[in-house]
Design a protein around this nucleic acid. Sequence first.
DNA 1: CGCAATTTTCAATAATTACTGAAAATTCAG
DNA 2: CTGAATTTTCAGTAATTATTGAAAATTGCG
Lengths: 187, 187
Amino acid sequence: MNQLPPLTHQFVSHFGEMGSRWGINRTVGQIYALIFVSAKPLNADDIAEALEFSRSNVSIGLKELQGWRLVKLKHLAGDRREYFEAPQDVWEIFKSLAEEKRRREVEPTLSMLRAALVETPANDADAHAQKRMQQMHELIDLSSTWFDDVARLSPETIARLMRMGSSVKTVLDMTDKLKIVRRKKEA
Amino acid sequence: MNQLPPLTHQFVSHFGEMGSRWGINRTVGQIYALIFVSAKPLNADDIAEALEFSRSNVSIGLKELQGWRLVKLKHLAGDRREYFEAPQDVWEIFKSLAEEKRRREVEPTLSMLRAALVETPANDADAHAQKRMQQMHELIDLSSTWFDDVARLSPETIARLMRMGSSVKTVLDMTDKLKIVRRKKEA
DNA sequence: CGCAATTTTCAATAATTACTGAAAATTCAG
DNA sequence: CTGAATTTTCAGTAATTATTGAAAATTGCG
């Protein structure tokens, strides 16, 4: 850890500290950070040595990162060991993370809500509760479906949409007007 | 907890279980769920009794939820105790959560990255690390700025944008064409 | 195959986080 | 102001999660 070059060290430490806020632990955060900034794939021993963790801890951490699809396994010619690298494209990474988060943190709740919404409330309190769940379901469902839709766009289109910022509104308004014009012409 | 009506019980239990995945604990998750579905504001004793937690635990949990701006304090006429309720508008809730997450989970990383990007890399490894950090910074910065921009739109505009899904692309393409036409006219 | 290299599992323990009851602090009606 | 009601703090303990070294399992070269 201490013989890492300064920028790498800073980055790795930060990911370790933030880990708990992000729902991963210090070890996993540091391992990911190290792999992310590394110019070449790393094997478990490289990581254990660089971060001064036990080999078994690194093994567990790598499994976790694979579960999140944040690192991919790579085999180097003439070397039996397993090497890991982070996908190069940060958009790719972002999408994997979002998908995985959705699967683990959002879907179970959507299922629960759907199940609750088809029940018949037993009393006034539950009737109200169900209304609230309905609102929550609608929001989560809409926003996650939308995310999926957007994620399916090309990176360029997404970048364009994002650079547009709040001026999307102008565009939406414009298309509304066009629709109205077209409707008038048709009439 | 067990005398809660069935739908409420199910909802509260789910939030307790999911809590750890969401970075809050079981207690906090359940308290929030209970307040969210409740038809009227609740005080700490109501909550402690309903969920069978100690009064002090409820106090800590409520502080945490206030920190996330997920519950608001309310005073009922002729009652000295503090009552809590969740904002009614789920959009509002979503935005508060996003802002708070950004402040706690994103901003610190952006700061660290910005600091790293103005440093001079000490060697090749750090030079590569810095490039990777640059990519990460760009993505995070762009997407969080964009989120801010969108959040500033009216709920109706956002809903419109979301319902549009991946067909935003068509709209973007359309505006591109309009721009080209306008440019030609001007020439 | 056989076996050395490599990875994984697991039980023990360390570290962290959650929860409680009691005591302290705060609040506000009278 | 006073003091009862209410909320917060805090030290102790319980529960959970992280980490390790050693042993077991797996892998794939020769």
